[in-house]
Design a binder for these strands. Structure first.
Lengths: 205, 205
DNA sequence: TGCAAAACGTCAATGAATGCAAAATTACAT
DNA sequence: ATGTAATTTTGCATTCATTGACGTTTTGCA
């Protein structure tokens, strides 16, 4: 039933891909604000108006693989082994969906450049946080379903606490200018702190 | 030095106040998207262009008291008693700055309406999350300063974990349609989970 | 009073986003 | 192959937020 891409679908796919690549290239070359939607559309040979049938807004194009990342995450949660501790499960979700290059080669190709881009454009930061927030709500539902022992509030707290810790830690590291190596270690530490709780933090001397 | 409001400052204050009240009234009456900046400016008898010297953007006006909330929070962190556990300190920060009516009467007056407004307008949700994120980074610095036993990563994880848990839990409650009473209890639970860690969650039956 | 700074306003322009109706393209059945 | 229905694309007009440049008005202060 779903095997047939069909000419129409294939063409759309190609156009979409072209838009993503063109947009990211332009953003890298001239900066996000200096790039107009009309220019992006031109790279894929479509009318400006048509751009908006592929993406709801100019900033959406930067987060083209969000949906597939979320799906991957929900899938992992759904495959939870009964009895598996929530902490372990979420740990897997983190590095297999958030930090893995989910979307084929494209995601890997744009990875670092995109990170820098988002960090430098306030509008993109806001969009990312909004998407991430929405994702957390969906993960909450998935977790609640997969773990009957958790009520909705507990599931939400688990997701929010872990994701929140990581997100803020990563930002703090970037702000400080840490290398990826160091940032990665910080993420591990953040994960541990969320899992073991604030009370596990060092006490005053 | 700072005692003299001066005519100029007082006038600005009054205009600012008028803009806030006018804007929130219009948003409540006709909705956020249906209200133009020109209309908001008109309620305070200023030119449209001038609006942007009071607020950087249309959505900024909704978060007029964010700055003062942050300042309150940083202040509380700065007054930490040496030896006070981080968890206790952050608990105080949460209910004395985030959930208190910081900004005089105005904040109280618009409180519930504003919450509903933000929840119903995606652009405002995104803006709120962005501001909250920025606030967390500043709280991280403050906490790191006030608690020499915590390195920057630990401070960031503490703030992110606690705030993240609460934010997601509140959203989940609102989505479910909980009453304020219930939501409040959920916030307490979220706080406890962040403090005690994900491992404190119930185990599978 | 008179000057410099701070605010304000006018004008014009840019660019994102959306609604609409016509034109082009694709899918599908005959 | 052909006609028809469904889907996409497009051009066009419009609305509106946001910004820059520049002149005018107010206010603070010497």
């Amino acid at each position: 039933m779903t095997s047939d891409p069909g000419l129409r679908q294939r063409k759309k796919m190609r156009t979409r891909q072209a838009l993503i690549e063109g947009a990211l290239r332009l953003f890298a070359e001239k900066g996000y604000d200096q790039t107009t939607v009309a220019e992006i559309a031109a790279t894929a040979d479509i009318a400006t108006r048509t751009f908006f049938s592929y993406f709801d807004s100019k900033d959406d194009i930067v987060f083209f693989d969000d949906r597939s990342r979320l799906e991957r995450a929900v899938e992992i949660i759904g495959e939870r082994q009964p009895g598996e501790p929530v902490a372990d499960l979420l740990r897997r979700v983190i590095d297999q969906s958030v930090f893995a290059d989910t979307d084929s080669e494209l995601a890997r190709k744009v990875g670092p450049a995109r990170t820098r881009l988002i960090a430098s454009v306030p509008a993109l930061q806001a969009r990312e946080l909004h998407l991430l927030f929405d994702i957390q709500l969906q993960l909450t539902e998935a977790l609640h379903l997969a773990c009957p022992e958790l009520d909705l509030v507990e599931a939400a707290a688990a997701v929010g606490s872990l994701v929140g810790a990581i997100k803020v830690v990563v930002a703090a590291c970037q702000k400080r200018g840490d290398r990826p190596e160091q940032t990665y270690k910080a993420v591990q530490r953040a994960t541990d702190i969320a899992i073991d709780g604030l009370n596990s933090l060092p006490r005053p001397a």
